[in-house]
């Protein structure tokens, strides 16, 4: 069986989108800040963050800032909580959080909390537990969790818990591994994991592993490399990761690599993209694959970055 083609993945990330007229780059123009987070975090996990020009990236990120304090997905785009977190995460990678007006950014995020404790993604008001996670993760990284009502935020997330132990996007919404990651992550960051039925949720999560070794996000769906991140992180946070077959999952992720041109895809032989490359490498990090730095399951940042932020080292 193959090995992780780390050098190829680094080259792929650095060169991605340079092809003139690539559909991929056109349609993700509005979410380029997310792309930067996926690409740069992967480079850091592979120990290659130094290949990029930090000052250039930081000044571009700053130019995505909106007067409200939030950030858009690219220059001139409306602010959204999702892109605001990506900006904070990328600046955390570079140890450049000090370029932010932390009060302003955290006021923007805190201002999106609703009366029932939930969070909206932007001024237009769409509510989703994804936004609860994003807000809590972002404010925690900025040491400003005190700006929101944490108790209500937790209560809302718990109200989205289902009969199978998982979580949905809103109360009554179907359990989905991505939403579960968000809810478990938010509960982990706020020290509220006791609200989770760990054994029940752990079993649901390990039921996501299919014969090929890959993980799906819901019953009877196809496996996808991105769930290596959503499912594994959740299992680690509730201390149940030993319930899945790690070797088979490693083999599945490695089988999704493009070993010639770099990059990782959702399933073997599909076309690669930056999103799945990040989730594949991050999944391998959780599986303690040699040569990949450890990633924090709640903050989705390398452990050394998280330690620097919370322990000053």
């Amino acid at each position: 069986m193959g090995e992780l083609a780390a050098d190829k993945h680094v080259k792929y990330i650095v060169s991605v989108g340079k092809k003139k007229g690539s559909f991929e780059s056109v349609v993700i123009e509005h979410m380029r800040v997310n792309g930067a987070y996926w690409g740069l975090t992967t480079l850091d996990l592979l120990g290659m963050l130094h290949v990029v020009d930090v000052d250039e990236i930081v000044s571009w990120l700053i130019s995505c800032r909106h007067e409200s304090g939030g950030f858009g997905g690219n220059v001139g785009h409306d602010p959204h909580i999702m892109y605001t977190l990506s900006v904070v995460q990328v600046l955390a990678l570079f140890d450049k959080l000090d370029v932010l007006d932390i009060e302003k950014v955290s006021d923007y995020v805190a201002g999106l909390q609703n009366e029932d404790g939930s969070f909206s993604g932007d001024e237009w008001g769409e509510v989703d537990t994804r936004f609860s996670y994003i807000a809590i993760c972002c404010l925690s990284l900025l040491h400003r969790l005190n700006k929101i009502n944490v108790e209500k935020a937790v209560k809302y997330i718990v109200s989205c818990k289902n009969l199978d132990g998982g979580f949905g996007s809103t109360p009554g919404g179907e359990s989905h591994a991505g939403q579960i990651f968000c809810c478990v992550g938010a509960l982990a960051i706020t020290g509220s994991l006791h609200h989770i039925d760990k054994d029940l949720l752990g079993w649901w999560l390990c039921e996501r592993q299919v014969k090929s070794g890959g993980l799906n996000g819901r019953p009877e769906k196809l496996p996808d490399v991105c769930y290596s991140w959503w499912v594994l992180s959740s299992l680690i946070m509730i201390d149940r990761v030993h319930w899945i077959n790690k070797e088979k999952l490693v083999q599945y992720i490695l089988a999704c690599q493009d070993v010639e041109n770099g990059g990782i895809s959702d399933r073997p032989d599909d076309a690669v993209d930056v999103y799945h490359t990040f989730f594949g490498v991050a999944g391998l990090s959780h599986l303690e694959y040699p040569g990949v730095k450890a990633i924090d399951p709640a903050y989705a940042l390398p452990v050394d970055v998280v330690n620097r932020i919370f322990f000053g080292r």
Binding site: G17, K20, S25, A36, L40, W60, V75, G76
Partner: peptide
Amino acid sequence: PQNDGPNPVVPIAYQDHF
């Protein structure tokens, strides 16, 4: 035109119509 800054990390190549 979109201003992505110099040498962007995730460079965007645009098609004419778009």
